[in-house]
Each structure stands twice: as structure tokens, then as C-alpha cells.
């Protein structure tokens, strides 16, 4: 398999090690009330699809970057590759905008601005 590294170009998959399902990027909140259920799901349960699968690969014998690789588990075709850090940051900013968009936070920010 060839993994098309976003920064280094096409590299042999043998340079990488695989951790598993990219859902592992979404670590649950350990303080939540249902944290035990969430962590059970997070640590042990997998979709394990036949078809496209997003997974975490580590460029161990290269630039040591973490990648999110979208790969077909039936054909082994690599469909998409991106830096895991970018994926995580994008998810984080999405979460932030989500919190920004709630009514409460908007009002909070408003009142903060008035105080200034």
C-alpha cells in the first residue's frame, strides 16, 4: 500500500504503523456523568466497516507525524490522507464555534463587550 503523505508525498505503508479507528481522536469527557459508558465505547467498541474506514497511521520511520488515512478495507485503496493534527484542530474549532453559537455564550460575550 502507498500512503500519499500530505507533506512528503507518496510513501510505502511499511514506513508507518497503524493505531486503528480514527474515532480514537474523539476522547470523551472524563468528567461527564456517563463517562464510564462513553469510555467503554471509546476504548472497546468499533464500527469495523467493510468499505471506507478512517484510521490513524503514525509515520514512525519518517517525519513521525500522525495521519488520518481514509482507506477501503475491501480493496486496500487509500482514498484520502490528512494530518491528524489538522483533523483534530478542525474538530476542535467546530466544537468552539458550536459553543460560540449557543445563545448563552452569545449573551455572555455581548455583556463582556458592553463591560469593555
Amino acid at each position: 500500500m502507498i500512503i500519499n503523505h500530505p507533506k512528503l508525498g507518496p510513501r510505502d505503508a511499511a514506513e508507518f504503523t497503524i493505531l486503528g479507528d480514527a474515532s480514537m481522536l474523539n476522547r470523551p469527557d472524563w468528567q461527564a456523568d456517563n463517562a464510564d459508558d462513553e469510555f467503554y465505547t471509546y476504548v472497546y467498541l468499533r464500527d469495523n466497516p467493510a468499505g471506507l474506514h478512517r484510521e490513524l497511521w503514525f509515520h514512525e520511520q519518517g517525519d513521525r507525524s500522525w495521519l488520518v488515512v481514509t482507506r477501503d478495507t475491501i480493496t486496500h485503496d487509500v482514498v484520502d490522507v490528512s494530518l491528524a493534527s489538522n483533523v483534530a484542530l478542525a474538530a476542535k474549532s467546530k466544537k468552539v464555534t458550536k459553543t460560540l453559537n449557543t445563545k448563552k455564550t452569545r449573551e455572555k460575550l455581548k455583556s463582556k463587550g458592553q463591560n469593555r
Binding site: A13, T73, I74
Partner: peptide, 13 residues
Amino acid sequence: DGYNSYAQRGNLP
């Protein structure tokens, strides 16, 4: 091989 797969074949490494 180490990666998820439903193909009944592996790779050369």
C-alpha cells in the same frame, strides 16, 4: 498485517 481488512489477501512487507 495489522490494518483493518476484509480482503482475503495481504501485502508484501
